[in-house]
Design a binder for these strands. Structure first.
Length: 860
RNA sequence: GGGCGAUUAGCUCAGUUGGUAGAGCACCGGCCUUACAAGCCGUAGGUCACUAGUUCAAGUCUAGUAUCGCCCACCA
């Protein structure tokens, strides 16, 4: 007590308490407590292949506030941490860091080790899939340690024994178990059809992973001749490079301009292909020229129209986005003039889409079939959200999970979940209602969860996709590329009449949609699963409602006919000072480390805690400073209280007897009640507002009112009343503020309340003590907060008067006259001594009046 | 085109069931007051985006308008 630090050094206390929390297992989940008394959190596994930014700190703090509150309410909190380390971001990072490409054809090289190097892209070393995966593993493990250190510094009350990584054995096994279960239930199918395809990553992607980008483009008005006629018409297209892929020309059935052409044929320029002219309802007479070409495949309309037609696919673009070799004249590339067609097509071979476009425009111009110069415009183009080249539709074989046929059920599941804030549910509803494709879960990548599937090969080594060989549940996780299915031997791999492993990996969402089951150990530990599933809360951001939240609801419904969690808590975004979303691509990201160092973890948490769920918040260092100020104030006020209490081990609330003390307790009581209600509604921000405001009243008014009585009063009862109130108040504020600013509260708690002798709560860490409750002091509940408020009013008048007179606060007031209704006098009378001392007032008198006015006469 | 949200003091934001507009920061003035000058006290600052309506009473409820943001759809 005698050697309390003069200044608050947040670096020291952060280090000290992090270690203490870790060594004493303060945040450990107790597996022996039933589900009723458990609060389980489906922590978002951060993508580890990037750096954390202040937005992560923001939303993870929100979850921690709820976790800490629930823990203090006596819940057995299950707060795990996961790492999302599979998927494209990791692969891309590893490729760049080591200058390597994955070549699945190569054999594993046990002597190869990843080393950081920078080579030109065409000089990258090829490594085997297994080597590549090991490199990914090394990188992610290193990243995870960095992340963990930051989370610990921020003070997240995670149980670090509960960890998973989406690429680890457990998660791979769980993903495969899920796949097999869905397969058994008939929710999975394979389809060989045009699929959303990213040509850079060379993989299929899902509808949910697309985004529109506004890009420059141009309308190209191209003349098409009508077969066996001298007539022609003009189509307008943004994708002239696909002219050779044209399979038909369509116009709206009601479009009078073109009705006479239906049933006839058009001949494409350059390639001289005869294509039918047909009616199609999706053709909009008001757009372009009203007549358009169908190409395989220019956009989703082409795909949809093609599926209902009997026409062949003329595929020009290869999986790598380049134009393939084509022999004109061979089906389906028939031509009226094979030689000319080949001449025009040949220069396109090997080009990428935009290069081919330039080339073909030159050709069209040279042929005189481009009616006008290209008309420039900008239009939205579909991209894979992580890609740099527009999406193409390429026919490939993919695995799908059925979702379209269960929209109603999925909407009903959404209704059973409580969304915070509630309007976020409409995002979910909108998305489900607008779905138009099943969920494509296969990806042609390497660092991910493989499908637990092999295919038998016929005597031509062709895979028999209709009769896959399925792994057994107890084999999971399996890697079909290195493991052998029952009944076969390794030397039969890829041999005629042998087998082959499914080469694809799963969409990363196929794994992260199972985060509740991954942590509940569904399928392997039924007791644990029952304790933890469904989970209590799923914290996440709103832009992934359509992916993470949606897919998790899908899986929980298919596997368990249940909701995955009872509540979804949605954090908003951090906006930069121009109110733009912070994102890597915009280059406006703020990283948290230096902020934590400058302002302290408590201060950063304070800033995060001021933002309500769902609300986007501008990045504002001013608020960090306020948080830091609060921590400093708590430190100083606590030091003051400690000085007063130094000689007293234990004080009892029954010693609180004085009017102003009782009314102050009543007023703080009200705050406990309000804050508790707010926290129960997940509204930590309102709770903080109330607590904080009252704490400043404690410092600015209550302490000033009673400090004299605390150290100068001769009447021991009056003195003890002040001391007991200070003691109880501080103990209460510390606990109310503990979820928000865990370091400083723990530090102060350790000065007095963690000691067994003075701690009826019997815990060493404040974070394991009970949240304050009005049940603690029934004898005081009946008190009124009126006297405290009267005192504030009087004190304020005194201070204003002195301030306006440019006087020191120590300057005496010669006389104060309280004009007030007579029935209030007795109340004032009970606080008169305290007011007089705090305001340096020599004399207080009363005067009857209907309204309250306070008259102050300063001394000379 | 459909859906959702926001608009309150110079800035960042509160405002629970309708009842006289709130905080912090910034600004300005004052104050060494035995926890804190990284402090304290105080002053000033707002047609609650706009228009109509309901009501004794609207920041709050209803309808519409504008601006900003997000989600979805369309995108030849």
């Amino acid at each position: 007590m005698t050697d309390l630090p003069k200044k608050l050094n947040h670096h020291d206390i952060e280090k000290k308490w992090q270690l203490f929390w870790q060594e004493n297992g303060i945040y450990d989940w107790d597996k022996n407590i039933d589900s009723e008394n458990t609060f389980s959190i489906d922590t978002p596994p951060p993508t580890v292949s990037g750096s954390l930014h202040i937005g992560h700190v923001f939303s993870y703090t929100h979850t921690d506030l709820l976790a800490r509150y629930q823990r203090m309410k006596g819940k057995n909190v299950f707060y795990p941490m996961g790492w999302d380390d599979n998927g494209l971001p990791t692969e891309r990072r590893v490729q760049n860091m080591y200058s390597i490409n994955c070549n699945p054809q190569l054999a594993y090289d046990p002597n190869w080790h990843a080393k950081e190097q920078t080579l030109k892209r065409n000089e990258y070393d090829d490594v085997s899939r297994q080597n590549f995966i090991e490199a990914c593993g090394e990188v992610t493990q290193r990243d995870e340690m960095t992340f963990e250190a930051l989370w610990r510094q921020l003070g997240l009350s995670i149980d670090w024994q509960q960890q998973y990584a989406t690429i680890d054995d457990h998660c791979r096994g769980m993903s495969q178990r899920s796949f097999l279960d869905l397969m058994n239930q008939g929710y999975v199918y394979q389809s060989d059809a045009p699929t959303l395809w990213d040509v850079d990553f060379q993989t299929a992607v899902a509808q949910a992973e697309l985004e529109d980008r506004e890009k420059p483009g141009a309308y190209h008005d191209i003349r098409f001749n009508i077969a066996d006629s001298t007539d022609y018409f003009v189509i307008s297209t943004t994708r002239p490079e696909l002219l050779a892929a044209c399979i038909a020309v369509v116009a709206h059935p009601d479009d009078k301009r073109y009705q006479s052409l239906f049933g006839k044929y058009a001949v494409t320029p350059l390639f001289k292909a005869k294509v039918p002219i047909l009616p199609a309802k999706h053709a909009d007479p008001d757009k372009g020229t009203g007549i358009l070409m169908i190409c395989t495949f220019g956009d989703v309309n082409d795909v949809e129209w093609w599926m209902t037609s009997e026409l062949p696919i003329k595929q020009l673009i290869k999986r790598n986005g380049r134009f393939r070799d084509i022999t004109m004249g061979e089906a389906p590339f028939e031509s009226e003039d094979v030689t000319t067609a080949q001449t025009f097509y040949q220069p396109l071979v090997g080009l990428r889409v935009n290069q081919a476009r330039t080339q073909i425009v030159t050709q069209l111009q040279a042929e005189g079939v481009l009616v006008t110069d290209p008309k420039k415009m900008t239009h939205p183009v579909k991209y894979y959200e992580k890609g740099d080249t527009p999406i193409e539709f390429i026919p490939t074989r993919q695995w799908f999970i059925k979702i379209l046929e269960n929209k109603d059920q999925l909407l009903a599941q959404g209704d059973k979940i409580q969304w915070h804030p509630p309007y976020m549910k409409s995002r979910y509803d909108n998305w489900v209602e607008g779905l138009n494709q099943d969920w494509c879960i296969s990806r042609q990548r390497y660092f991910g969860v493989p499908f637990p599937i092999w295919y038998p090969l016929n005597n031509h080594s062709e895979p028999q996709y209709d009769s896959p060989i399925v792994a057994k549940i107890d084999q999971l996780p399996v890697d079909p590329l290195s493991q052998v299915p029952d009944g076969y031997t390794e030397d039969q791999r890829n041999q005629p009449n042998g087998f082959t492993g499914d080469p694809d990996v799963m969409d990363t969402w196929a794994t992260s949609s199972l985060t509740p089951q991954i942590m509940s150990h569904w399928g392997s530990n039924e007791t644990r699963h029952q304790q933890l599933f469904p989970m209590d809360i799923r914290p996440q951001s709103h832009e992934i409602i359509r992916t993470w939240a949606f897919y998790t609801i899908v899986k929980a419904w298919y596997h368990h006919q249940d909701i995955p969690w009872r509540h979804v808590t949605i954090s908003g975004w951090i906006l930069d000072p121009d109110r733009k979303k912070m994102s890597k691509s915009k280059g406006n990201v703020v990283t948290p480390s230096h902020l934590l160092d400058d302002y302290s973890a408590d201060a950063i948490r304070y800033w995060a805690a001021k933002a309500r769920l769902g609300a986007d918040t501008a990045f504002d260092e001013g608020v960090f400073a306020v948080g830091k100020k609060l921590a400093t104030k708590l430190f100083n006020a606590s030091k003051f209280v400690m000085m007063q209490l130094a000689d007293y081990d234990q004080l009892n609330m029954t010693e609180i007897t004085q009017s102003i003390d009782l009314s102050f307790v009543a007023s703080l009581n009200e705050v406990i009640e309000t804050a508790t209600i707010a926290f129960d509604r997940f509204d930590y921000a309102s709770a903080l507002d109330k607590i904080e405001a009252h704490f400043w009243q404690f410092c600015d008014h209550y302490i000033e009112l009673v400090k004299g009585r605390a150290y100068r009063e001769e009447d021991i009862n009056k003195k003890m009343s002040a001391l007991a109130t200070l003691d109880w108040s501080l103990k209460t504020y510390l606990r109310l503020l503990a979820p928000f600013i865990p370091y400083i509260t723990e530090e102060v708690w350790s000065w007095r309340y963690a000691k067994a002798s003075s701690n009826q709560l019997g815990k060493q860490s404040i974070h394991q003590t009970k949240w304050p409750s009005i049940d603690e002091f029934q004898n005081i509940i009946a008190s009124s907060k009126v006297q405290f408020e009267q005192a504030i009013e009087i004190l304020t008048v005194v201070r204003t008067t002195k301030s306006q007179a440019n006087m020191s606060m120590k300057h005496p007031v010669e006389r104060m006259i309280i004009h007030s209704p007579e029935q209030n006098w007795s109340s004032y009378e009970t606080i008169k001594d305290d007011i007089s001392r705090a305001g340096m007032i020599n004399q207080i008198t009363f005067s009857p009046s209907e309204t309250v006015t306070i008259e102050v006469k300063l001394g000379a």
